[in-house]
Structures are given as C-alpha cells and as structure tokens.
Design a protein around this nucleic acid. Structure first.
Length: 740
DNA sequence: CGGCGCACTTAGGAGCTGCAGG
DNA sequence: CCTGCAGCTCCTAAGTGCGCCG
C-alpha cells in the first residue's frame, strides 16, 4: 500500500516518477487509459457492476476506511478523557528558535521573478483567448439548437416557448456578464476605483410575544422586558437541540441573558432550571408549521418581497459594473453556536445597530443612507480593501464584513490567482521536496522540524496550524500546532514499518484520523521530537506558521502552507481523472469516475459531512427500486425470448416488429438498472464525504472544464448554476488541452 | 521581532425547494 | 397531482496569512 505510486499523497516516492515532473510534457488526452497503470486506491475504475464500494477505495495511508467512522466517534470523543487533553492554563504561544531562521540562501534560484509571472500567464494572449472563447460559445449555441425538443404529451408549443425563453435569458445573462478576465489588472493593492451601494440590510426589530404566550419562572408567569424576552425566545427555539443540554451552553446563555434583564428580573430569575420556556417553544413550532402550510399565493408574496430586498440591497456598482453582494444582510441576534466544545457556546450575539457599522464606498458615490433616526459608525473610502461594510461582533470580538459574491470580479480574480500560484508550485515542487528531504538531516532542530512539518503538509495536505488563544475557541490543531498527544509512533503496525498514527481535531472540530507509513528519516526525527515531552506539549516546539511561511516564500514567491493543499488537490483530480475515465464509458460511468476523482481529493483534504439522517432509509429505497427493476428486466427478457420464438421462421411483420420492440424494452431496462446501480455505488461511497468543499475551493475549475470538453460531458452535469457563475472565467478561457 | 488585529478564504450544517417518481 | 428527498442556497463559524506597531 505504502508504495502505491498512484497515490496523490505518496510524495516521497514520487519525487522522480511524477508524471508531471517535467511540466507541460503531459497533455490530458481523451484517450484510453494507460493499460498498465498501477491500480489506484479507488479500485476498479471500470467494473461498474457490483462495485462493492467502501473498503476498496481507501487511500493508501488510510487504514481500511477508518476515516469513515470518524463522525460516529465524534461524540464519544468528547467524553473521552484520554483524548481531549486540555491545555495547561496559558496561551499556547511558543518561544521561537532564533538560531535557524529561514536564512539559507541556496534556494534563491527557485524564486525567479515573481508577480510578473502571474501577470503574464494571466493576461497572456488576449487576442487568441478571445477568439477561442468565441468559437467555443458558438459551438455551444449550435449544439443547443440542434438538440431535439423534449417530447412531452402536453402542449408542445408551450414547452418550446418556455425553452426558448430560458435560452434567451441565458444569452442575455451571458451578454451582461462582465468579462473582467479580459481586462488589464489594476496596480498592486488597488481593489476598485468606484464603489457604490445601499449599505447592509438590517434584520427586522424584535416583536414582543403575544399576551397569551407566557414565560414562567418557578411556576409563576413573568412578563419580561423585550430584550430579556427576546433572549428567552432564542433559548426556547433551541430547546429541541442538544446544545441546550450542555452545561457550558446553559451557563453562558444564562450569564448573558441576565445582562438583558431589569434589576427586578435579575433578582427574581437566578436559576435557569426554574425557567419554563414551554409556551415559547410551542409558539415557535406553530409559527414554523404555519409558514410551512402557507398557500402558494402567500408564499409567492413573501418570495417577491425578498426579491425586492435583494434587488435593492443585494447589488453594488463596482467600476461601472453591477455586482452581486455575497452577504448584504446583517447577522441577526442569536445565541452563539460554536462548533465542537466551544467555550463560548450559548453566549448572546447582540443585535447590530447602524451605529456599529462602518461603511466603505467611493467618496463620489451616493453614500448609503442609514436607517431613519440612525447614524453610521463611520464612512470611509478605502479602495485597498474589498469590503462594503463591517462591524465587530461581540462574542469573539472579531470583525465581520459585507463582501461581494463569488461570481464577482474581486473574488474571481483572486481565485484565479490562487490557482496560478498553485500551478507555479507544480513547476518547482520537485526542488522543494528535495530540499525538505535534505533538511530532515539538518543539525538545526528548527530546520528539521520545519522539514517534517512540510513533509506532512505536502503528503497529507494538513492545514498550517496557527496558534490559537486558549479558552477562546475549541481545542483544534493543524500541522504546526500539533501536540505530542495527537501522534502515536509505531515501529511496525499491521506489517508496515514506521507508521505514524494521527488523531486530532482539525478545523470545525472535524476529526483527522490516519495511519501513515513514513520514510525512515522522518520517523527518526519524530522520535527525536517527542523525547522528554508530555502529551500536552507542542510537537514542533521550534516551529510556527510564520517561520514556516517565511521559509516557503523564500523558495517561491507567494508560496505559503495552504498552497500545498490547493496544489495537491488539483493535481490529484487531474491524475485521477486521467486514470479513471474512458471516452467509451457511458454518461453515468463518466460521472461516477468524476465523482470518484473528486472523492479522492475530498478524502485527502479530510472533507467530511454527517451522514444524511435519512441515509439508510433512502439507500434501502434505492435498493428496492433496483430489485424491482431487476425483476422487470427478467420479465422483459422472457418476453423477448417468447417473441423471438413466435417470430422465428415467420415473415409476419407484426411479429418481427414485436421482437424489435421487446429488444428495445430489454435494452432500456438494462440501462436504467445500470444507472441506478451506479447511483447506489456513488451514494454509498459518499456517505460521509463532502465533495462540495473541494469543488468549490481547491480544484482548479479549468481541469474540470477541459475534462468535460474532452470526454464530452456537458458541464452542467458536474457544475450547478452557482458553480458555473463562480467559474465563468475558467469556463470561458479553458481549451481542451488545458493542463494544470 | 513578536504580538495583534485586519482582511479574506475555507468550512459544515440548517433549512428550503423543485422535481423525479409513484 | 402529491410527496419525499437530493441538491441547492444561505448562514456564519473557523481557519490562514499579512502587515503594522510598539
């Protein structure tokens, strides 16, 4: 397993045989897959029937699907004193090792000229790009025109009209789209020249409870003043959630809630356990129910009202173009829901007033009006930042921003740049790997630790792991903040040598569990690092993310720890797609292959999700459908046989057409069955894996676009509307021969 | 030169909705 | 025509990394 070179993670063995090692040599062609590729971790790419899933696909470092169990264990973990080790009473801050900064100069040649490179690559050949995209677009249009109209029984004309309208709208939209990627970039640091907007949208004021809904304390009805009452309602609404059973949540809530009470109320209400929110909860449920049961017309009215709000507040004008704002609504007050064991869960997140909000826009724009009777905290005109409004949130004291939608120029350009940086890493990753392998032997402890950390980041796609203030957030770690207790070293394990077992909570308290064979030198270093340390001690005591990133930026301009995640994710997708897909596959198989390639990335990046609540049920339903279809197929086959028999020797046309008909029926049945089986496989494999995060944030869209073009899969089979909007730049500029 | 705050990306879950399939 | 649920949108928390300041 360990030496499976097809693994996206098996970097140390790949240093020399990386198929992409010499840059552009390799072109992603729609041809057959190479016959002699080593079998990849996902097992059979081809056997669509009976893909028995899960076990086979485990990645090389992963111990037979262990990661799959993680979510189930999450709860237990919280109670397990051996796992959750709390810090030791102070901020986790480290002394830095001064003796071996990233001063080494030998890497210098790696960096070449920066900035320029990105720019040139980005802007290159505007003319040809333009031409090509034009052709591509024409082609699309033609194909759409040729497609036969779906033949439903209903009024064909209506359908036709609707279709035409849709197409027209699409064209319209396309015409309106700002093709910013064809324009010159602004000078460094300038984000816009003109910005105008209406300011954020504030949530509605609190509406006091009707008189017949009462809160009780100690059995007696108490009418609370509105702010306290609002707090009570927040808590009541969450009563069915397990949050409200947690001690920390309850204590935090109660403390903050009391701050909203009048002196009298405060004196009376001293014990949360004596509070009865029952009627509030009932009312809440009734309201939810009522909303659900609204008539179509009522719903339509609400929908239209919302659209009006979006129309008014949801857009801004940025450099002559109307752009969608991502989050124009101020976050309404609520109880803070931190993830995992968050020390601040249950605290009251206060209502934001215009007086808390800073507005950012052009001086010469129409300055947004604050709501009547209010003022803004400040109006500034800073075109070196991308936000339109900001405020400070009271629970964590952090800043919140109103920013543009992902399909905007500002976001898109940054995204494009991100992938270009990752592509530049591709061209020098071999040298960087060689360097850190060398550094594993350094005399400087700091350098060694840096090398090992890089090895993990590169091979396992770990996050950088910034320091966190203790007591402010849940106890989670990344690479640099790993502690001794998160790692177990096995000289041998299950027949493999030098196995490192990781078990820690990462971002969003998602558990990372993995058993990884490492090279001997790394293993030796790891042993060295843990000497004389306790479980709660930092694993890399001479390293932090600043040091690491400083070193990385000396190797390549713009290189930081997170670039490795982007790079390894994208390169993995590209490699897997090439291995898994066949042009001769049918559509369902192609899509399964795409999902599997996507899945390889999601597993690498540890993107998990809670299994859908209805997973087992819906799986069983699907299986039932498959079974009944199988019966149908058997029946159809029998009928075909019969028809053939009857028709043999006869020249009766009726009989012959009957045979043909039956043949078709069998075929159709088979196709449907296959499609369902593929779907079942896909769904099963995806039980606890979230594909969306990597699709949205890590996979260079040009890889997917080129794949679609090459293998003749319509793009909307893999990208929904949002994704197509976000990646419009890539869809527009990518040719079949794109190589990441 | 390290600590901190700001700006921006990445993340999973809740809740809604539209449509496939009965 | 109804309904269940997959897939989407929305929401906001939780990361990364940079640059400023003392």
């Amino acid at each position: 397993m360990a030496d499976d070179s097809s693994s996206p993670k098996a970097t140390e063995i790949k240093l020399s045989d990386d198929p992409f090692a010499n840059g552009d040599a390799l072109v992603l062609k729609p041809k057959k897959k190479k016959a002699k590729e080593k079998s990849l971790q996902y097992g059979k790419a081809k056997t669509h029937k009976k893909m028995k899933t899960s076990k086979k696909e485990s990645m090389d470092f992963e111990d037979s699907g262990d990661r799959r169990l993680q979510l189930d264990v999450k709860e237990e973990l919280k109670e397990d004193p051996d796992f959750v080790v709390h810090g030791k009473g102070k901020k986790r801050k480290r002394k830095t090792d001064h003796t071996d900064g990233p001063s080494s100069t030998s890497e210098a040649p790696l960096l070449k000229k920066k900035k320029k490179v990105v720019k040139d690559e980005g802007q290159m050949n505007l003319a040809t790009e333009k031409k090509k995209k034009k052709e591509a677009k024409d082609k699309v249009k033609k194909e759409e025109g040729d497609r036969p109209v779906s033949v439903k029984k209903k009024s064909k004309e209506e359908i036709e009209a609707a279709r035409a309208l849709k197409l027209k709208k699409k064209e319209e939209e396309e015409k309106q789209r700002w093709r910013w990627w064809e324009e010159e970039k602004y000078e460094h640091g300038i984000k816009w020249k003109f910005l105008e907007h209406k300011g954020p949208y504030f949530p509605p004021e609190y509406q006091p409870l009707p008189d017949d809904v009462k809160f009780y304390y100690n059995g007696k009805a108490v009418k609370l003043n509105p702010p306290a009452e609002e707090g009570a309602l927040f808590f009541a609404q969450m009563l069915d959630h397990e949050y409200t059973t947690k001690e920390v949540f309850r204590n935090n809530f109660f403390r903050d809630w009391r701050k909203e009470m009048t002196l009298e109320e405060k004196q009376l209400i001293t014990d949360l356990n004596k509070c009865d929110f029952g009627e509030l909860l009932v009312m809440h449920k009734q309201r939810v129910e009522a909303r659900k049961n609204m008539s179509k017309e009522e719903k339509q009215v609400i929908k239209e009202a919302n659209q009006k709000i979006v129309e008014e507040y949801g857009f801004c004008v940025l450099d002559h173009h109307r752009e969608r704002i991502g989050n124009f609504k101020i976050e309404p007050p609520a109880l803070f829901r931190g993830r995992g064991d968050h020390p601040k869960q249950g605290m009251l997140k206060k209502r934001i007033q215009p007086e808390d909000v800073i507005i950012n826009c052009s001086k010469d724009s129409h300055i947004p009006e604050p709501p009547a009777g209010h003022r803004w905290k400040e109006v500034r005109h800073d075109n070196t930042v991308t936000w339109l409004a900001s405020w400070t949130e009271n629970v964590q004291g952090s800043c919140k921003y109103v920013m543009l939608n992902a399909n905007s120029k500002l976001k898109g350009e940054k995204d494009w740049e991100k992938y270009e940086v990752a592509r530049r890493l591709k061209s020098c990753v071999d040298a960087i790997r060689a360097q850190y392998l060398e550094d594993l032997k350094s005399k400087q402890m700091g350098t060694r630790q840096r090398a090992v950390a890089l090895y993990f980041i590169d091979k396992l796609a770990l996050r950088a792991g910034n320091e966190k203030e203790e007591g402010e957030t849940a106890d989670t770690v990344g690479c640099c903040s790993l502690r001794v207790e998160h790692i177990t070293l096995h000289d041998t394990l299950d027949g493999q040598k030098f196995v490192v077992e990781f078990d820690f909570l990462g971002k969003d308290c998602i558990r990372y569990y993995n058993k990884v064979p490492v090279i001997k030198r790394v293993f030796k270093d790891l042993k060295l690092f843990v000497e004389k340390k306790q479980g709660g001690d930092d694993f890399f005591d001479r390293l932090n993310t600043q040091l690491l990133n400083k070193h990385l930026s000396s190797l390549m301009a713009g290189l930081t720890a997170k670039v490795f995640r982007t790079y390894n994710a994208s390169i993995t997708l590209q490699q897997q797609l090439q291995k898994l897909t066949n042009k001769t596959d049918n559509m369902a198989e192609k899509l399964l292959s795409y999902n599997r390639a996507n899945r390889a990335v999601a597993i690498l990046c540890n993107h998990q999700r809670a299994p859908p609540k209805t997973f087992d049920q819906s799986m069983a339903n699907l299986q039932a459908k498959i079974d009944s279809r199988k019966e149908q197929l058997a029946l159809a086959k029998k009928e075909l046989k019969q028809a053939k028999k009857d028709g043999k020797g006869s020249s009766d046309n009726k009989l012959l057409t009957l045979v043909e008909k039956k043949k078709k029926a069998v075929q159709r049945c088979e196709e449907q069955l296959l499609r369902m089986e593929v779907q079942a496989t896909d769904r099963e494999e995806n039980k606890q894996i979230a594909l969306s995060t990597s699709k949205l944030n890590y996979l260079d869209p040009r890889i997917s676009v080129a794949w679609c073009k090459n293998i003749e899969v319509p793009l909307d089979k893999i990208y929904n509307k949002t994704l197509r909007d976000k990646f419009a730049w890539a869809i527009d500029m990518t040719e079949n021969d794109f190589v990441f």
